[in-house]
């Protein structure tokens, strides 16, 4: 299984990296840590759950992306990971 990265490190975007892992690990590095860290963390967990992901290593490098962008990047990453693994 491969590592998949989606998005960019431009302002208002985020780079989401997902790779197979034996448990669910989430790393979030965000420029709006004080104001939105917990919010982003909840959003990432919720989105993973919607897609039935219970095990993966997920890294979100956030440059001030709004929820829709974080969700879209993560969704694309999950789809690509699944497509890659047939």
């Amino acid at each position: 299984m491969k590592t998949v990265s989606v998005g960019t490190l431009e302002s208002s975007d985020c780079l989401v990296t997902i790779k197979p892992h034996e448990s669910l690990e989430i790393e979030i590095d965000t420029v709006v840590h004080d104001a939105f860290y917990e919010h982003i963390s909840d959003l990432v967990r919720k989105t993973l759950k919607e897609h039935g992901i219970t095990k993966a290593y997920v890294i979100v490098q956030d440059k001030g992306a709004l929820d829709y962008a974080i969700k879209a990047r993560l969704t694309t990453a999950i789809k690509r990971m699944r497509d890659d693994n047939g």
């Binding site: 989606v6 998005g7 929820d67 829709y68 962008a69 969700k71 879209a72 990047r73 969704t75 694309t76 789809k79 690509r80």
Partner: peptide, 15 residues
């Protein structure tokens, strides 16, 4: 292409 489609779609539906 998939990134753009999903990003645009998610944005339009939400906002």
């Amino acid at each position: 292409k998939d990134e753009a489609r999903i990003l645009s779609e998610t944005f339009l539906k939400k906002h």
